[in-house]
C-alpha cells in the first residue's frame, strides 16, 4: 500500500492535473502550483546527486578499492567546492547592505565560486567535450565504409554538408552560375536544400514517431499500466 499504491496514485493525480488543465483553463492555478513544487524538487535532485556521489566515493575509499586515491581527489574537490559555495567564501557584500556578508552574490566576479568556475569547471568540461573532435576523426577513418547504396547516400550527404558549410563549398563549385537552375547545384545552395527538404522530412518523421511513443508511454504510466518506475520489490 505505502510502497506501491500511494506513489502510483500520486503520479496519476499529478499527471492528470497537468493534462486536464490544458482542456479546462480554470484548473490552470492548480497546474501552476504543481509545477512550482516540481521545480523545487528538481533542485533537491541536485542535492541528492551530490549525496549519492559522496556515498559512492566514500565507500570506495573505505574499501580501498582500485583507484581509491582518485576517489579521494573527487571527494576533496567535492567538499572544497561545496564549502566555497555554501559559505560564500570570497564573496563581497552588497554595497547597500555591507553588514550582511552572506547576502553577497556568490557568482560575482572574484568570488571563490567564480574562481572554481573560471579556472577549474569551465576549462575542464570544455576540454573533455572538445576531445571528441579527435575521436570522431579516428572513427571516420576506420568505420565509415561505402559498403552499399545506403552507406553511399549517408557519406555523400556528409561530404556535401561538410564542404558546403565552409568556404570550400563556394570555392569548389564556383564555376556554376549564381542564378538559374544550375545555381541549385552550387554546394552552399545544395546544403540549404538538403537541410530544408530531405533532412526536414526525415527528422519530421522521426519527430512524429517519438511524439506518438512519448504520448503512449506517458499515458501508460498515468493509467497505472506501466509501473516499472516504482522499481522492483514490494
Amino acid at each position: 500500500m505505502l510502497k506501491r499504491t500511494i506513489p502510483m496514485l500520486l503520479a496519476m493525480a499529478a499527471g492528470i492535473v497537468m493534462i486536464l488543465a490544458y482542456f479546462f483553463p480554470w484548473l490552470t492555478p492548480l497546474q501552476d502550483q504543481t509545477t512550482v513544487w516540481f521545480n523545487i524538487l528538481a533542485a533537491v535532485a541536485f542535492i541528492l546527486g551530490g549525496g549519492n556521489l559522496l556515498k559512492v566515493h566514500l565507500k570506495k575509499v573505505s574499501d580501498r578499492r582500485e583507484g581509491w586515491a582518485y576517489s579521494m581527489i573527487t571527494l576533496a574537490a567535492f567538499v572544497g567546492v561545496l564549502v566555497i559555495g555554501l559559505f560564500k567564501l570570497g564573496v563581497n557584500p552588497l554595497d547597500d547592505f555591507p553588514a550582511q556578508r552572506m547576502a553577497g552574490d556568490f557568482r560575482a566576479e572574484g568570488s571563490g565560486f567564480w574562481y572554481v568556475y573560471e579556472y577549474v569547471f569551465a576549462p575542464l568540461t570544455a576540454t573533455i567535450f572538445s576531445m571528441l573532435a579527435f575521436y570522431v576523426a579516428s572513427a571516420a577513418f576506420r568505420a565509415f565504409r561505402a559498403k552499399n547504396f545506403e552507406a553511399i547516400l549517408l557519406l555523400s550527404t556528409a561530404f556535401v554538408i561538410l564542404l558546403g558549410r565552409t568556404a570550400a563549398g563556394v570555392f569548389l563549385t564556383d564555376f556554376l552560375p549564381e542564378e538559374g537552375m544550375l545555381a541549385n547545384f552550387r554546394l552552399e545552395n545544395l546544403t540549404v536544400w538538403i537541410m530544408n527538404n530531405p533532412v526536414t522530412a526525415g527528422n519530421r518523421a522521426i519527430m512524429i514517431g517519438i511524439a506518438l511513443g512519448t504520448a503512449s508511454v506517458s499515458l501508460k504510466i498515468l493509467l497505472g499500466v506501466d509501473r516499472s518506475y516504482l522499481g522492483g520489490g514490494d
Binding site: G50, L53, L82, L86
Partner: peptide, 11 residues
C-alpha cells in the same frame, strides 16, 4: 567532484 558540488550549491 567539482561539478556535483557546483550543481548542489547552485540548486
Amino acid at each position: 567532484g567539482a561539478s556535483a558540488a557546483y550543481w548542489m550549491v547552485i540548486g
